[in-house]
Design a protein around this nucleic acid. Structure first.
Length: 406
RNA sequence: GCGUCGGUGGCAGAGUGGUCAAUUGCAAUAGACUGUAAAUCUAUCGCCCUACGGGCUACGGAGGUUCGAAUCCUCCCCGGCGCACCA
């Protein structure tokens, strides 16, 4: 495999979406220019069902490195996931079962495979740390942990915070970063990529790699997606702006459109393959008074959906969006919800998963949140019977196509 | 182990015998204005019903006192802090 050492491409890797590089940017640049094939990986603990847009940044970076000819891995921490990663958890985590983890890994791979190539020449490979960690003996673990002091481990932000708040830290959580760091040794890697929240763990691996294999492991930390107004993490399930990598095209497009304008540029940089020069042009455009930021956001939404569903679906999602929300029309291909004539609307709405409870549906109607798309009028009657084939808009985002069973 | 303080809705955090489905802040949802943006304003934010009313379930768990308990008592579980123990 010939390694591409195009300085421009290398610079894009060194600067785009990057927060910090250890030991230094210059050293990594030299390494990338040298023409050596590097072993690079991202570690991910499959402790949830869904990956979100914030995760994509790292995989995009990894894919770019793969395209340059480097050997890339995705490491699933199927062992460490069971321990519970303390990162970003102010409370101790629950442990997961084997089955849950297996399921998560399957889902994650298919989500990642839209960004990262797992087939063809120089394809990305998946590795799982249960393979070696489960074989470790007590002796190995004790030896491994003797590389670090308690003081070093509790330096970590999340532990510091917990100590300050007088929350528990379990001993197994201390082992977590060490075991994860050991992954670097087993894989004998040259570079690891992860979010800034993973800095500590990745640095542990860097230390171990130097000690055991006498090899310099570089670490790239990438920027996290943050809401520029609140400073909070952007992809937060409870905040309703969570964009899952396996969302359907319409949802993905719509949710992207619902994001605040101020992050358009950051998302272009971190979550798409659009070239930086082009992003710069968009950034300039956004400053002009007669440019509607909405249109630039549409381009963003299009590019994001394209990565996960292809150009055609992205196009459809865009047309659908324009039609349904800008022109007040209807989206195409709405799934039909079959009911018997006269069925109770709120019961059916709950069954269809549009709302959580009858009370919520009732409230929505009271607030004028349910609309008959045929007449364009708001529904005012609570418990209106479903007698005709009709399409309703329920809340801000959802459409409900009711078809009467004959 | 001893002492002491505490466990309330997604979170923070009031309430300490009836006026409690529980003040407030954050988050969330809907409406108005918009561009499914931001800001702002308004409303909502346990479940169920034949719905300006009624019922049920909830303030760590189980019992009890009382006409009445998130609030008082008993036991249990969990946590903080202090002290003691630590081959």
């Amino acid at each position: 495999m010939k390694i591409n050492t195009n300085p421009q491409k290398i610079d894009e890797i060194l600067f785009r979406s990057v927060s910090e590089i250890f030991p230094s940017k210059d050293k990594l640049r030299k390494k990338l220019l040298s023409g050596d094939q590097l072993k690079i990986y991202i570690g991910a603990d499959p402790n949830g069902k869904q990956l979100h847009l914030g995760h994509s940044t790292n995989f995009i970076l990894l894919e770019k490195l793969r395209r340059l000819g480097h050997k890339v891995f995705v490491l699933f921490g199927d062992f460490t996931a069971r321990l519970g990663d303390p990162t970003d958890k102010l409370e101790p985590r629950k442990m997961l079962t084997r089955e849950e983890i297996e399921k998560n890994m399957k889902g994650w791979k298919s989500q990642i495979s839209n960004i990262l190539k797992f087939n063809g020449s120089n394809s990305a490979k998946i590795v799982k740390n249960n393979k070696w960690i489960s074989k470790m003996k007590m002796e190995d673990i004790i030896n491994l942990s003797s590389n670090f002091t308690v003081q070093q481990i509790i330096k970590r932000d999340i532990f510091k915070q917990r100590l300050k708040n007088e929350k528990d830290i379990y001993l197994n959580e201390f082992l977590y970063p060490i075991l994860q760091g050991y992954d670097s040794v087993v894989l004998d890697v040259d570079l690891e990529i992860g979010g800034t929240d993973q800095t500590f763990n990745m640095m542990i691996g860097r230390t171990l790699q130097k000690r055991y294999n006498n090899r310099e492991k570089f670490v790239i930390t990438t920027t996290l997606l943050e809401n520029p107004i609140t400073g909070k993490k952007l992809m937060n399930k409870s905040e309703g702006n969570y964009i899952g990598l396996n969302d359907n095209p319409k949802d993905m497009f719509g949710k992207t459109m619902a994001l605040p304008d101020k992050i358009i540029i950051q998302l272009f940089i971190d979550c798409t393959f659009i070239l930086l020069e082009e992003i710069k042009i968009i950034e300039e455009k956004l400053k002009l008074p007669y440019i509607n930021p909405r249109d630039q956001k549409m381009k963003l939404a299009f590019e994001i959906v394209k990565i996960y569903h292809g150009e055609k679906k992205a196009q459809e999602a865009q047309e659908d969006f324009i039609n349904a929300f800008q022109k007040g029309g209807l989206p195409k291909d709405l799934p039909k919800w079959l009911v018997v004539s006269g069925a109770n609307s709120s019961t059916e709405a709950v069954r269809a998963g549009l709302v959580d409870s009858n009370s919520k549906f009732r409230r929505l109607i009271k607030e004028g949140g349910v609309k008959d798309m045929e007449s364009g009028k708001k529904i005012t009657k609570i418990n209106f019977p479903l007698n005709e084939n009709k399409i309703y808009k329920v809340g801000k985002h959802k459409f409900w196509k009711v078809v009467i069973k004959k």
